[in-house]
């Protein structure tokens, strides 16, 4: 159970706004780790910093033992980190299949067909709509496409940002079922969620973010039973 991702003391700014204030955490192989917290706590910012779209002023980010804190975003993907961003951000004008091909932009050609088959197996709906322009998909289908696209690059770490956002409850269950299956298949997952209930029910460990800092951490079970967490995030 080696560490896949180690984040050490990162500080991220948007102009004058200090968004991330010295966060450290790690994700071990095969785990689902979840970052929960309110809107604006810095969850998405943390993911953006790991995937290289934002930079930390301090500290380091290590992936599989080497630093990626200065690696350009487009190279981090080929190292094995796949980031499924908040709001899906699929390429609306491209077909479903072209979107998946873009997800495999850095994947070796001989693995693309196999990965495509795997994604279609996980999301049969996408196969039915392969030639359809992605912008015409429903919200749930777009989320499936975003996740499928994220799987096309053979990720060793899959980062999911708010996969349940804006979806009907039945679709939320479906998406979490899929996350559970990916986990069983051995994928390491870093999950950001506002739906703390769902996130904690599926995760191994969790970190609670509050205004750019880690307020609490522990196993998902522990946090589920924590009074503070129950009050603030589980609505009990």
């Amino acid at each position: 159970m080696g560490s896949v991702l180690t984040v050490k003391n990162i500080n991220v700014y948007y102009g004058a706004i200090h968004a991330i204030k010295g966060i450290s955490f790690d994700v071990n192989k095969g785990e689902i780790v979840t970052l929960i917290g309110a809107n604006g706590a810095g969850k998405s910012t943390t993911l953006h910093t790991i995937s290289g779209l934002l930079r930390s002023k301090t500290g380091d980010i290590e992936f599989l033992g080497s630093s990626i804190a200065r690696t350009p975003a487009h190279k981090i993907v080929s190292l094995g980190i796949s980031h499924v961003p908040e709001g899906r951000r699929i390429f609306q004008g491209l077909t479903v299949e072209d979107n998946l091909q873009m997800g495999a932009f850095v994947t070796k050609p001989d693995r693309i067909a196999r990965n495509l088959e795997y994604v279609y197996e996980q999301f049969p709906r996408l196969k039915e709509r392969a030639k359809q322009v992605a912008g015409t998909l429903s919200g749930g289908e777009q989320q499936m496409l975003a996740m499928g696209r994220g799987l096309m690059s053979d990720p060793r770490l899959l980062m999911l940002d708010e996969p349940s956002m804006g979806l009907a409850p039945i679709l939320v269950d479906q998406i979490f079922e899929i996350i559970h299956n990916l986990h069983k298949a051995g994928t390491t997952i870093l999950l950001v969620e506002q739906n703390a209930q769902m996130a904690l029910s599926i995760a191994d460990r969790a970190y609670v973010l509050e205004t750019g800092k880690i307020a609490l951490e522990g196993s998902a079970e522990e946090l589920m039973g924590n009074e503070q967490v129950q009050k603030a995030y589980l609505g009990e």
Partner: peptide
């Protein structure tokens, strides 16, 4: 369409 998402795909 989306410069940031394209980078997340590994596109330079």
């Amino acid at each position: 369409e989306d410069n940031g998402a394209a980078q997340l795909m590994g596109i330079n």
